[in-house]
């Protein structure tokens, strides 16, 4: 089978994970790869468990949904509990430090102060998604850091570029440490 990377970003609605998924997919395109991004829509626009899915591949991507993922990001306990079983053996789990470490010994777990970095260091909880993206890429190198930074800056609201660049760099450092 063709090797493709399947990523699931999970948390609660309003954390900006769908935007994070879009940015990650755009970064993959900048790298010259293929990417598909999809999400689950519920009737509620905010709150509740939310997820964005990204598939990145060197080849064509047919089936567009993520089933078993290679990388799972969970910013909330609820999301982690819901999606943990979808992480493949040998997969990477990235957790916010507020989430309890689950009992699975067939995966690699990275527990990082993502939300805390956004609120304390950067003073804006809403950049948690960008910190998370930086962290995810620091750990996995799934796309080039250069493309990801470019994709972040082209998608965030005008006037917030500096803040988001800082958030991205902080996340990257978290992920690499």
């Amino acid at each position: 089978m063709i090797k493709q990377n399947e990523i699931r970003l999970s948390g609660s609605g309003g954390q900006g994970l769908i935007l994070a998924g879009i940015i990650l997919a755009e970064a993959a395109l900048l790298d010259g790869k293929n990417a598909v991004q999809s999400q689950s829509y519920g009737p509620e626009a905010r709150g509740g468990a939310s997820k964005a899915e990204v598939i990145i591949s060197e080849n064509d991507i047919n089936y567009p949904k993520v089933q078993k993922c290679d990388i799972l990001l969970s910013l909330t306990e609820k999301a982690c509990n819901k999606y943990l079983e979808t992480l493949k053996t040998g997969g990477v789990l990235i957790l916010d430090s507020s989430v309890d470490t689950p009992k699975r010994d067939d995966i690699k777990v990275f527990k990082l102060p993502i939300i805390n970095t956004a609120t304390e260091k950067l003073g804006k909880v809403m950049v948690s998604n960008i910190v998370a993206l930086g962290a995810l890429n620091g750990i996995t190198d799934i796309v080039s850091a250069e493309s990801l930074k470019k994709a972040v800056l082209s998608r965030v609201p005008r006037g917030t570029e500096d803040l988001n660049e800082k958030a991205f760099n902080e996340g990257l450092t978290l992920g690499k440490s």
Partner: peptide, 9 residues
């Protein structure tokens, strides 16, 4: 709905 909402290249 799948084609309508998914993003791809």
């Amino acid at each position: 709905e799948v084609i309508a909402h998914m993003r791809e290249k």
